[in-house]
Design a protein around this nucleic acid. Structure first.
Lengths: 234, 234
DNA sequence: ACGCAATGTGACAGTGTTGTGACAGTACGG
DNA sequence: CCGTACTGTCACAACACTGTCACATTGCGT
């Protein structure tokens, strides 16, 4: 599990989503909010969260449908799902758990109850974390053990550096703006100077040593993880 | 989203409203100021803005009430609201977010913070851009990775050269006047010498090397991206 | 061939962007 | 309570990029 468990919040009502986000953050979790199934899917494709907080009612598809779909997909199969439903209808509860939800919670709920249930699910899942390894250009990053190695030698990274590298390596070649990185790594709804990203990139490069060339600056656009362009000899 | 996002500023103190307006304008946004709820409502009925900057205290109604009302109305439901309040009282914050605000900023605030928060909200609302690759005449340009290659070899372009080539390649064959290029690539709100386009075209050609023949001059009209015209025989 | 207008080109100072070191605040474990 | 590790911000330096100019070159009509 990453230092700060990532929680993907799928909730269409912005006010509630924000409320949840605040509480999660306060509880030491890292919320990422999405308002519909499509966005949630994209987010899920990007970085696998430690837990999904899934609202029953969504604008595009039902939470039930999403849960079933994610449970069927091998990549997201093992991510625990906590269902969020308006009233404690017994049929819903059964259907939700049937679709693969690990637990469910009914609105309105207290902050403590939400956190407690999330922690319970995380704890239950913790021991059997599946592998989440990314490799590229001689670097090897393991999300499960929180370790990075360069040609076999272990590297020492701080938490933020690790998450930064993790995200960059999951989307190699692609250029990410500072704003995007803030959203994805620090979580949305937090206000941080964009230049802070630069500083962490520097610290990351320091820690990477020789592998620093893999983290490239694209002037006027952002940063990217990639093997340096080959020199063609012809 | 319009090229220049419209921001409806609802703030009763003229001095503060003006200050905000100046900062927004400077940040590339288009502010429209109103001093009370009634005017704001009229403005909202007239043209839907991209974001609403809403003061907590207003002469006629509370910002909270406005937010709730706008959130309930289908027309204005999806316009993000950024609440503005004098002190960072947590109860107020929760109430504001509960009423439908997307984010919250407390006075006094820095210019940068205001702009950053506005951009963050706008960004969150904007759909995630899909990959855009353009190819033509042996050139390949990828907007996501910000890379250009000529018959497989990577090319090094500056930011403006990249945008210029991107635009030209997106509309091949077509001739673009210098004025059009300035509008599309530099933005329509800045005044720049038309000859500057020529200079960037030259730099672009330099960077393109052999592929420079694809960027053609049409005397008296402008520039165009196209495969060179064949020599007509017969 | 000539003159005019349009375009190419090299140079340059100003600006903006990024790298970097330092610093204070915070969290955490001993 | 103190030390350690980490974070976010800032100020400054280094550097790339930008816009403009002056001048060279080209194209075109007469």
């Amino acid at each position: 599990m990453t230092p700060q468990p990532r929680i993907l919040v799928v909730e269409d009502e912005p006010a509630i989503a924000e409320l949840i986000a605040i509480n999660l953050r306060h509880g030491g979790l890292l919320p990422v909010c999405t308002g519909d199934g499509a966005r949630a899917q994209r987010e899920l494709d990007a970085v696998l969260p430690d837990l999904i907080l899934l609202d029953w009612m969504l604008p595009d598809v039902s939470g039930l449908e999403l849960a079933r779909r994610w449970r069927a997909h091998p990549r997201s199969k093992s991510v625990p799902i906590l269902m969020l439903t308006a009233r404690g209808d017994e049929p819903d509860k059964v259907a939700g758990l049937d679709a693969g939800a690990d637990d469910y919670i009914t609105k309105p709920f207290s902050t403590q109850e939400l956190l407690a249930r999330i922690r319970a699910v995380l704890r239950r899942r913790a021991p059997e974390q599946t592998c989440d390894v990314v490799a590229g250009g001689g670097l090897l990053l393991d999300g499960a053990t929180v370790r990075v190695s360069w040609r076999g030698d272990a590297l020492r990274l701080g938490p933020t550096e690790f998450r930064l590298l993790h995200y960059l390596m999951k989307h190699p070649e692609r250029v990410h703006s500072r704003a995007q990185l803030l959203d994805k790594i620090w979580g949305d709804h937090v206000y941080i100077e964009e230049r802070t990203v630069d500083v962490h990139i520097k610290r990351l490069r320091e820690a990477l040593g020789d592998a620093a060339v893999l983290v490239q600056t694209v002037r006027g656009a952002g940063y990217r993880f990639a093997a340096p362009t080959e020199v063609r000899i012809g």
